[in-house]
Design a protein around this nucleic acid. Sequence first.
DNA 1: ATACTAAACGGACTATGGTCCGCTTTCTAT
DNA 2: ATAGAAAGCGGACCATAGTCCGTTTAGTAT
Lengths: 192, 192
Amino acid sequence: MPLGAPHERSDAARNRERLLSAARDLVAEFGAEALTMDALACKAHVGKGTVFRRFGSRAGLMMTLLSDSESEFQHGFMFGPPPLGPGAAARERLIAFGEGRIYFVLENGELLKAAGAATRNRFDVPATKLSHRHMEILLREAGIADPRVMAMSLTYALDPERIVDDVRVRGISPTRLTDSWRELITRLLPAA
Amino acid sequence: MPLGAPHERSDAARNRERLLSAARDLVAEFGAEALTMDALACKAHVGKGTVFRRFGSRAGLMMTLLSDSESEFQHGFMFGPPPLGPGAAARERLIAFGEGRIYFVLENGELLKAAGAATRNRFDVPATKLSHRHMEILLREAGIADPRVMAMSLTYALDPERIVDDVRVRGISPTRLTDSWRELITRLLPAA
DNA sequence: ATACTAAACGGACTATGGTCCGCTTTCTAT
DNA sequence: ATAGAAAGCGGACCATAGTCCGTTTAGTAT
């Protein structure tokens, strides 16, 4: 709700609530993958145009649905206690960040995959962009030559599709993922 | 063409040629992204069902279109001269592999993106799978604790979508990509 | 040459994300 | 209270990947 925004009309607010509620129900019952925009419009007793006016796209809807748990995770690495939050060395923070992200993805994987799948470049997902910035800063702090590009490599290494498929399709345990992430960061960044 | 395969019927062969030729024309003229299965069927004077019978899916078509340059690249890292091919240390081979892959992707990016976009997990693209195996072997040779998982991280770091978008959308030069890849591998693998 | 079979064909049909635009509702200024 | 404007609404419509199935055709056995 931007400050200068003109008051949201009451019918718009009502429909937004209806849609969010219906969407959460559908996701809870059938999973995010199975959610279709038609079904959502129907269940919320709203026209299809309204769904798209509200959320822009399927990806936009998924991002909205994500925003709560997303904010929580973001808060953790930006303001929370070390090693995830500020106060620890970049290396430790990156390790903790990757581990946190892996578990975050495993909890919200369907939504994240759905959010990323529909976007042209998955980078349009704000959560992804913020993660990237965060890693970029830590990598710079740790003396990486091109933190922006390296952060992109690591971002893709933590791609929701990759993590979810590793665990659910290829049978890799979450522990193996976090261990490998730790090895990656440990070798990548010189010990303090 | 598997050995025991029953002879391919002449009409099937004729239609395959027509389709491949039409597809190459369309890609050359409008780009891979713009190719629709309807347009292809129409241009090849063939029913839509035939297109799908031949290639299974849009991704399948793209993979078929890719197979030539793909084989060439594969041959390079499996049988070619070092440092890309066998004969060099794992570290050097991985660096060369990443660089080669980056340029390969930049040349065939549209097809690769199109091939990956339509697949459930982009891992179904055979080129990707083979790259993964190759990296896994080199990582094992270099003493990485969990080569399979680490190879997956690196595979995603070289994702076609990532590379193409870095260069075309985010304005990263190919050189920056290869430099960063070199830094990544150099730090990741202990010097010989 | 004929009949038979399995493969191949083609295009109508479905599913789904997304757009468009004429109609309706809410808010605001008077 | 009223009128006008701006925002919102809804569902018909479009594009496109992929499926289905009745019909056709190439090869084969006789």
